[in-house]
């Protein structure tokens, strides 16, 4: 009796669509990536209410040592020596875009007078929308 020769299948993984998947992921990351304009390391205060901050908002950050950095939302934040410089920067930004949103990113331990100076400068620069950057407060935070 003549036996049929067994056909051998070479094992292979279909990789034709791998590049499609990869490029899809690339497009996703390219669209969602946001480059931080301010990299100041702070411990943010915690709040229960938190709202989404519009993209490309201007930043004023205060680190634990009280140093102030400002960014117009496009450029990386730069150190300023006094709150008066916040006023001149904010006034310049508001002159270009009166609806510009400002974010105050301050360490929770910074004394109120420092934050007060910054908020006062923003008020004088006619800034209307300010967000106080915060972390989520949870039940365990008390």
């Amino acid at each position: 009796m003549k036996l049929k020769a067994t056909i051998e299948h070479k094992p292979n993984i279909p990789t034709a669509s791998m590049a499609d998947i990869a490029f899809l992921l690339i497009i996703f990351f390219m669209l969602t990536i946001t480059f931080e304009v301010d990299k100041t390391q702070v411990v943010l205060p915690k709040t229960t209410l938190r709202y989404e901050i519009p993209k490309q908002s201007a930043y004023v950050s205060i680190d634990p040592n009280g140093r102030i950095r400002v960014s117009d939302g496009n450029e990386q934040s730069a150190l300023v020596s006094a709150a008066d410089e916040v006023l001149s920067m904010a006034a310049g930004v508001i002159a270009m875009d009166p609806q510009k949103v400002f974010v105050v990113k301050s360490d929770g331990e910074v004394s109120w007078d420092k934050v007060d100076e910054v908020i006062d400068a923003l008020k004088r620069a006619k800034v209307r929308d300010v967000y106080l950057l915060s972390d989520q407060r949870t039940v365990t935070d008390g």
Partner: peptide
């Protein structure tokens, strides 16, 4: 994934 949320703090006109 940065913290991009916070409390809105509408400033009154000066």
């Amino acid at each position: 994934f940065t913290a991009t949320r916070g409390l809105d703090f509408a400033l009154p006109e000066d």
